[in-house]
Write a protein that binds this DNA or RNA. Sequence first.
RNA 1: GGCCCCAUCGUCUAACGGUUAGGACAUAAGGUUUUCGACCUUAUAAUGGGGGUUCGAUUCCCCCUGGGGUCACCA
Length: 482
Amino acid sequence: MSVRLRFAPSPTGFIHVGSLRTALFNYLFARKHEGKFILRIEDTDQSRFVEGAIENLLSIFDWLGISFDEGPHTGGNFGPYVQSERLDIYRRHIERLVAAKQAYHCFCTPGELEEMRAAQVARGETPMYDRRCRNLDAETARRRIEKGDPYVVRLTVPLEGNVSFSDLVRGDISFQADMIDDQVLLKSDGFPTYHLANVVDDHQMRITHVIRGEEWLTSTPKHILLYQYFGWEIPKFAHLPLLLNADRTKLSKRSADVSVESYRAEGILPEALLNFVALLGWHPTGDREFFSLEELVEEFDMERVRKSGSVFDMTKLRWFNSEYLKKKPDDEYFERVHEQFPNDFLKGNDDAKLKYALSTLRGSAATYKEAAQQIIDVFSPNPEPDAESKELLSHDEGQVFLKSLREILEDIPSENWMEFNMIGDAFKSACKQSGKVAGLKGKQLWQTVRAGLTGQLHGPELTKLVAIWGRERVLSELERHR
RNA sequence: GGCCCCAUCGUCUAACGGUUAGGACAUAAGGUUUUCGACCUUAUAAUGGGGGUUCGAUUCCCCCUGGGGUCACCA
């Protein structure tokens, strides 16, 4: 039988990099085994639904180059693929469970539950539903429902015994039944909870492997119970290690950029993100680190998924990105950086010049955004000279040097300044010549040039900078430090 | 706190009982670029602790410690 996997996000408006990792592993496993990869939208929490979230999600996966075989956008034989369109299906399954006493109606109000939990905590107990509605007779329940009392439906968890399963990455895992809560399956608004919807859908959509984050590990026994109650085949489970903050807690919005959208906006390349994320919790044999999506499919193996969590190291992501960036042709590179320029910046500078600046200066930026900022800095007025530059220029040699350099440069005809490469060379020899006059050479000489030109001791390559700036600016900058 | 999971350099990880414990990022130093960066070279850096099993444990078992996850009418 062919393998079927799914990615089942909630439409909350952005994609967490942890979700991306989960999606990627599902995708890799599905493709590796020539199976199907399905998208299902889990929108059973109405309060969290965000308009346009599905479109956004699709666009992100399109950008990443990860495709779905079935889903709300492409359809398929096992739809609908949006949970809010499957309400009647869940209803039917709930009725089936209730009829078999594998689930029961609960009329406890949120207030009552809260009170109950507070009391349990006060007694030092683990908060857990005390099952007070579990033995309500069917007749009473029916009457209260007819009367319009709000209710939920809870899972009837066995009072004793164990619930066990074998996890593809963790091996055998066992839970004592009496530690499992009578989970709510149907909410009072008529929507199912994740647990019910997930199991019903995975079964109906013929999902064979459930690959998800470790945070689901402890609710898996509830899912197992549901499969057993329904008499369904249980899919294989694989719980992935968590992605972590630098402090090793679960990766969260609070302490890091966690949305794929924000990385895209910043100019992180999809191939870099995918490559980096694939290596979090998984590693192929050997020391190789660079993999295209196709190569990942080729190499992927569930056996090589680790069990411990991985810190999401932004520095390494940026390194991956800069490596991929280096391989980009100038045209594409320019186009992408161009998108990062603010409008008012674009207005003041023509493309040919920007393009020249970009192609000569590229190399040190880790993202498109950073590259754009470097260019913007070059075209912006210099900041106040720093202390070291001032010191350098305050010496007699410095002043003599600048004066000489100005004179030589002024004699270079304007049209020569338009030749980007030539002016760089001309500038270089002018510096050397002036250096002789002032008695400066080597590092001292070039530091003085830099200071006189930019007021800083480091920055882009000087000959390039001069060509980009052109005659007027170069001369006026030199004038400034007189 | 109960339950569950986990444990190799700072970080991502390799080593399916026998290695000088390997690679990458980061860091540092040197070289190169007459600056910075980039680049090249080198270095620093790890098996949490204690018991077993074994001729031999990073590797298998147990305990401890530490870390994390989860305990919602959220997923």
